[in-house]
Write a protein that binds this DNA or RNA. Structure first.
Lengths: 375, 375
DNA sequence: GAATCACTCCAAAGCGCTTTGGATACGTCA
DNA sequence: TGACGTATCCAAAGCGCTTTGGAGTGATTC
């Protein structure tokens, strides 16, 4: 143990580096410069209670003492230990993001990055930590139980909901506050979610192409067990039906939304006799693949082939500048992340206030990838 | 408070759902189905000590009792509370990823997603949590102090090192174990890092183009205060100089590696009298932008203009399938994440073992974006 | 002058775990 | 038989914080 006299510099401000830590194995483990509440209160010749109250804004401490305490805390660079605080309060001050990983095709969707960024900014503002866990999708339920029991999180964001997602009833049962990014068709109990109007967006996008005279319109969708993709297909089909056009299975594909998926699908379809004159894509990355195939086939975008795509407004895949490259249904996944986080935080603050929901509308942006169908 | 008789079913296995929680506000807050050590040991009629030791694999408990305890823990779905465990052991069982956010151009680099995924898988295997924090880059040092004091992580991964990065000496001083993803030129104290041989890779890529007869080779680089970008430029320049070619500033650009950056830069450069015949790109996204400009200018890839690009092997931006689209220097950022995490974990396990380093070599892959310079 | 009140402050219990320093029981050996 | 291990187990003291239930001062009121 370190042995040293008490605070030697009686007058003058005690510098953090001067502190002698006589207790706390932890504090010494890495030779860290850290005061805890006990040391702080001893230094102030006050009780831990008073110091704690002053720091947490409770009223029963005089303004004079509070200022003294705040000053000292600042000078000594005091930060309450999260774990201890969590233990005492029963709150973790952290939010969990559990990202299901399919062991079939485990991909890292760039959308997560932006969503997480948006959410992270909200957490930072609220003083919450974000803890991330990637879990094989067949183990998700076990992990939720774990998370609950291990108590290191106050709430959870549910990513990538599928149709009739079992996680929703599981989390309700467990009693862990959560917000779903997306919705889950066929779940009939109430729950909190934030989602883009995927059906509406794709109906609108398809309608636009139809109005431009396109009759053979392909859909390059995400995996359709995912709820968002299911909804998008519904929107696409609705538009076709509303205009008395037939829904043709060989114009519809559903896969992970990679560039290569867009390329291959478009290459194959454009090779056919009755090739489509337009594509509706679920991702700007897929749309890029389509564009590549279009070029390679010696065709010209907007003249020979039109593309409408969903655009998550990812910063590295910005859809052009003043003039958008692709005609797109834009909805920033990043701001969705931020909103989801805020929603969850307020849900945690007022648990009995019941589920909240928020439907965002995608913005239709006309770019240089659409034009009238060649006659 | 809930009042209920002790465990009512004396014989027969107690089901978790039957548990009555007479203590612990936490446990009740969300009506959760959770046993703690105290309840578990009471149920087993053993002391907490024994149960804890049995569960943590200490030798001073008989095999018979251990099995009994393990069985009960399993049945009651016992999970130790992370915060409590952390408080008691002084370890957090979590790793922090602090992602600096420039307030100039705050982008979400898709590379982070893959890196984080790789790291996350390693943490999951080791039973560690990953906690993510996005911080304005001018506040990073404050946040490191905070993190250290609040004690919620055992170590840190440093993202996006710049030249002479102050974070390295700061973290060493604070005494928080860390691994840098990348290196920092001009930092002379030893530290742990994992990096790709960026200089070597770009030298090799540029050399390839030179051997194909290209003389005017443009460099579309990332922001060059970032260490990786600085090294890449060095490699590019080395190759030029080795072949007695001049380094021309107006063929070099340095920005965030977006698609639009690649597009604009290429469009401008291809518009010139003495246009470059080849491009070296720092990102496959930028390379896609270049390709778009090439097409738009009515030129043909590999015949009129060649592209060599760095490829982080992001899953949604796969560089073709059997035949790569771009000739590329490939290095999976995802496996780098996994390796970085492993490195940090072993560093934490054996702190005095000193800094570790690991230099990965990028793989040169010949794709369909390079060809001999037109004569 | 006693009772009341507001204002400050504090001692101590508790959050759920680990770990120290025994205690107990049972064999073993001289 | 007593001394000594050895194998099991336990009570209690932390880890650093919050929070309950007062306690001590003056000032105010009747």
């Amino acid at each position: 143990m370190l042995l040293c006299s008490k605070f030697t510099r009686a007058k003058g401000l005690l510098q953090a580096t001067d502190l002698c830590l006589t207790e706390g194995e932890n504090s010494k483990r890495f030779g860290q410069i850290t005061v805890n509440l006990k040391q702080l209160s001893k230094h102030l010749k006050l009780s831990q209670t008073t110091v704690s109250r002053a720091l947490n804004g409770y009223p029963e401490v005089s303004e004079h003492t509070r200022n003294r305490i705040l000053k000292a805390a600042q000078d000594l660079n005091y930060r309450p230990n999260t774990r201890a605080k969590g233990l005492a309060t029963g709150r973790a001050l952290a939010i969990g993001h559990v990202i299901p990983v399919s062991n079939q095709h485990e991909m890292v969707n760039p959308v997560f990055g932006d969503f997480i960024a948006g959410a992270g900014d909200s957490y930072a503002r609220a003083g919450y930590d974000m803890i991330l866990t990637r879990v094989p999708d067949n183990e998700v339920s076990r992990v939720y139980h774990d998370i609950k029991a291990r108590g290191n999180v106050d709430g959870i964001i549910v990513h990538g909901p599928v149709i009739n997602d079992p996680r929703i009833s599981l989390l309700s049962r467990i009693g862990l506050p959560f917000v779903v990014h997306g919705r889950s068709t066929d779940v009939n109990q109430p729950y909190s979610w934030i989602d883009v109007n995927n059906r509406g967006a794709f109906e609108r996008g398809t309608q636009l192409l139809i109005e431009l005279g396109h009759r053979r319109i392909a859909l390059l969708n995400g995996l359709e067990h995912m709820d968002f993709a299911f909804r998008r297909r519904t929107g696409y089909e609705n538009a076709l039906r509303n205009n008395a056009l037939s829904v043709e299975p060989d114009l519809m594909r559903s896969e992970e939304m990679t560039e290569i998926f867009g390329y291959r699908s478009a290459r194959d379809m454009l090779d056919r006799e009755d090739r489509p004159t337009a594509f509706v894509c679920s991702s700007i990355i897929t749309a890029m693949g389509v564009r590549r195939a279009v070029h390679e086939a010696g065709l010209v975008l907007a003249r020979d082939v039109s593309i409408v795509t969903h655009d998550d407004a990812l910063s590295y895949l910005e859809n052009g500048d003043d003039v958008p490259i692709f005609t797109a249904l834009r909805s920033s996944v990043r701001s969705a992340g931020s909103l989801a986080a805020d929603m969850l935080l307020s849900l945690i603050a007022a648990p009995q206030s019941g589920p909240r929901t928020r439907l965002l509308e995608a913005e239709l942006i006309i770019g240089r990838s659409t034009g009238p169908a060649a006659t």
